[in-house]
Each structure stands twice: as structure tokens, then as C-alpha cells.
Simulated scan of single mutants.
Amino acid sequence: MATDDMWIWDGGRVCLDLVNTLRNRWRTPPAETLQSSGDLVLWLQEAGLLAPDPPRSAAAAVLASGLRLRETVDRAVLAVADGRLPAADDIMALNRSAAQAPRPALQIAVTDGRLEPAGTTNLATDPAVALALVAQDAVDLLLSAEIRRVRVCGADTCALRFLDRSPAHNRRWCSMARCGNRTKVRLHQARARRSEHTPRG
């Protein structure tokens, strides 16, 4: 079973964090962190979408649909980020999944004498409904201007997806602490080795 430290939360959107549960997509086979329905249930809870102790019968059947949703989201997001339309089957699958959960009613509150949106908790009690919330997030992303800011990590050994919210829109790494620093260290070591082997006049 996967542990929560295996999961990376640098996507910037919950739908991208789900996509990133499949690691090292450039390898054959890639590294799967959702190997059981229990893994997916735990991931949905860690993502803040699923209440504790969902019904066992509901949890057992959710893994296959979760993995299908993950790959549908990935294909659709990468297509639109690249200026293309997603496949009709992917649009249909996202719409069908997103419709499985009602949207929470908009709530308001008075803060410092003005109206503002109130924070709402949207914890599902069923894993299938929690997955529908992921699909809704993907639909929101696909229809937003932020879709043009979806990136794939620039590290040769990564391929995680993330939303570039940097001020200059030039973020290259899923995480500077992880891939950015590793890449810089590797490049520095390669330069040092080359300079050692360069003949000095």
C-alpha cells in the first residue's frame, strides 16, 4: 500500500495532483502509487475530498474508475494546454464523472462590513463522489485561462504536471526543492568534470 509521503502535492490543482499519482511516465512501466482501492481512498482523504471511514463496499469498486479518470484528465489537460481540443470520449467521460456530485451551494458571509464568499467544506462520504469532485476540478481548469499555464516538469527523469503560477510564468520544475535543485547539481557536476578533462595551455 502507498503511504502519503509517496504522493506529491505540487500540481496546483487537485486534478493535476491525481494525475501525478502515476510517476515516471517516461519509464516502462511507470511507477504506480495507487495500487489498491485503499491507496485511492487514502489519497482522496489526504486531498481533503473524502470523509474518514467511507463504506467498504463503495471503496472496493472505485480503483478502476479512479485510474480511468486520472488518465482522462491527463489527456484532456495536455491537449487543451497545447491548444488542441480533447477527444470527444474524454469530454464525455469528464462530464459524466463530474455530474456524479452536486455542486455545493454558494455561501456568503460578512467580513469587515462586506460580503464575501464563505468557506465551505465539500467532503464526500463516498469515494465515487470524491472522484466526481476531481472531475469537476478538471472541468473548471479546462474552461479557465489557467489551462495555458499547465506545464510538464523539465527534469529528464520526472514528467510531473503542474500549474505555473510564478509571476513571470516561467516555472520549469514541478518543485525547485526536488527536481530543480537536482538538475542544477547534476549540470554543475557535469561542467566540473568537463573542466577537469580540458587540457590547459
Rank of each mutant, 00 (worst) to 15 (best):
residue 125 T to R: 03
residue 196 E to L: 05
residue 126 D to Q: 02
residue 195 S to P: 05
residue 186 R to C: 00
residue 150 V to N: 01
residue 136 Q to G: 04
residue 193 R to F: 00
residue 142 L to D: 06
residue 117 P to W: 02
residue 177 A to H: 06
residue 163 L to V: 04
residue 145 A to T: 11
residue 127 P to V: 00
residue 139 V to F: 04
residue 166 S to R: 13
residue 165 R to Q: 05
residue 168 A to E: 04
residue 114 R to V: 12
residue 136 Q to S: 10
residue 184 K to Q: 07
residue 129 V to N: 03
residue 145 A to M: 04
residue 166 S to E: 02
residue 173 W to E: 13
residue 140 D to N: 11
residue 138 A to D: 04
residue 155 A to Q: 03
residue 129 V to G: 02
residue 194 R to W: 03
residue 139 V to D: 02
residue 170 N to D: 10
residue 149 R to H: 12
residue 120 T to S: 15
residue 115 L to E: 01
residue 174 C to L: 08
residue 152 V to L: 10
residue 133 L to K: 03
residue 158 C to P: 10
residue 117 P to F: 10
residue 177 A to N: 10
residue 157 T to V: 10
residue 181 N to Y: 00
residue 184 K to H: 05
residue 120 T to H: 11
residue 140 D to Y: 05
residue 145 A to W: 04
residue 183 T to V: 14
residue 151 R to V: 07
residue 126 D to N: 06
residue 161 R to K: 01
residue 170 N to L: 11
residue 192 A to N: 03
residue 172 R to V: 13
residue 196 E to A: 05
residue 175 S to K: 13
residue 133 L to D: 01
residue 126 D to H: 08
residue 141 L to Y: 09
residue 123 L to W: 03
residue 175 S to F: 00
residue 154 G to R: 13
residue 178 R to Y: 05
residue 189 Q to R: 15
residue 148 R to T: 11
residue 162 F to Y: 09
residue 117 P to M: 07
residue 190 A to T: 14
residue 143 L to Y: 04
residue 134 V to H: 08
residue 142 L to A: 08
residue 186 R to K: 12
residue 121 T to I: 01
residue 178 R to I: 10
residue 135 A to Q: 00
residue 160 L to N: 14
residue 133 L to T: 09
residue 124 A to W: 00
residue 155 A to P: 02
residue 139 V to A: 07
residue 129 V to T: 13
residue 140 D to K: 08
residue 169 H to Y: 07
residue 128 A to N: 03
residue 183 T to H: 14
residue 142 L to R: 12
residue 171 R to L: 00
residue 167 P to W: 00
residue 177 A to C: 00
residue 170 N to M: 06
residue 140 D to I: 08
residue 118 A to R: 08
residue 129 V to Q: 01
residue 156 D to T: 15
residue 176 M to L: 09
residue 142 L to I: 15
residue 152 V to Q: 15
residue 161 R to T: 13
residue 135 A to P: 01
residue 146 E to Y: 06
residue 149 R to T: 06
residue 121 T to H: 00
residue 117 P to E: 03
residue 160 L to W: 15
